[in-house]
Nucleic acid binder design. Structure first.
Lengths: 188, 188
DNA sequence: GTATATGTAGACCGATCACCATACAAGAGT
DNA sequence: ACTCTTGTATGGTGATCGGTCTACATATAC
């Protein structure tokens, strides 16, 4: 009851990294297998429904991780504005460190959704909604009750957009623009 | 000198539609061939460098189309704010009409960029920059000289984010949030 | 000690991938 | 008539795709 879960974890870790770099369809199963060191038999033991199940669990895992990251960024700040800045620049720094390669785990999978069943789309929706809620919670904590929902959606929307533009321009400047946009809503 | 270009055009049209729906790697060459009705030989005549060349020309074509769309939206409005609203809701309506399937042509290809050469990334950067410039031009026209560049980047960033969230939630509400964000920057 | 989970390991499958090779049709220039 | 360019049309290439299969190792349980 120790090693067995490690293989599954390694598979998800590899999938997460590769999906973020190359997208769902751009990443072959054998590539995931090579990267994780797991044989094909183990993969289909842990994920009997195949690649789509792996993607689903990858989304959920990554979703929880990012949610925790965002939450801790805001928790360590004494104002909502500082939280926005901290969370945004933390994500930007990570992204830059990966060579502008490892973008949003959700959108990397969400793209192909239309051609398959929409279980992946629903998981994506759930994860994104969760991120919005985390931010809205902190917005409320700092007195922006009426705006909290909109602020959460706005910030996630801006981060998603920044991920795209940042990859295209190979610069973290879009994250600064994203931050400015969210802060502009607070100040209005 | 008439029919020859029509085949190439149909190939690009099909590729554009399918890339937007399923992404670059999610779309097979044979699927593009079937959709366009063109035979394989014609494809490699018009695009001797293969799929990547097709993607590159698709990005540029789509980039020009969207730039024209944005420009005409702003041109028909007597204030920058109305232009933002018009452009955003026009794109949102199109997206909804496609069943929340045909997202941003650039990001659908940009995702896989890291694994191949970065010619596609450079084309994407160029197209996105062009969109920003179009918006910035109209911002200047309405008196936002000092903010014009930032407003252009902010709006494109917001639209990109809205495309992602809109697909996930199957709703055009993210585009309304995007509009609100851009307008908040104007009013600050 | 033997039966039963729990996993590992990789050969193998048909389908599809992007791509190439060859053949041919039609118009233009000479 | 002649080639030459422009472009259409098709069949086949090896490689890789996601997925299934059976065999085997390990470990806990009785």
């Amino acid at each position: 009851m120790e090693v067995q879960e490690k293989t599954k974890t390694r598979l998800i870790d590899s999938a997460l990294k590769l999906f973020r770099r190359q997208g769902y369809d751009g990443t072959g199963l054998t590539q995931i297998l090579n990267d994780s060191g797991a044989p094909k038999g183990s993969f289909y033991y842990h994920f009997p429904k195949g690649k789509e199940q792996l993607a689903d669990e990858t989304i959920r895992r990554a979703g929880a991780n990012v949610a925790t990251l965002i939450d801790s960024c805001f928790s360590g700040c004494d104002s909502f504005e500082k939280g926005v800045l901290t969370a945004s620049s933390t994500i930007a720094t990570w992204f830059k460190k990966s060579g502008y390669a490892e973008g949003c785990p959700v959108s990397s999978i969400l793209l192909r959704t239309m051609s398959s069943s929409d279980t992946l789309r629903k998981s994506s929706e759930l994860v994104l909604k969760n991120w919005c809620d985390v931010i809205a919670k902190h917005a409320r904590r700092h007195g922006f009750e009426s705006q909290s929902t909109e602020l959460g959606e706005a910030m996630i929307l801006a981060i998603e957009g920044a991920w795209v533009l940042s990859r295209a321009t190979q610069s973290i400047k879009p994250f600064e623009v994203a931050t400015a946009m969210v802060l502009a809503m607070v100040r209005k």
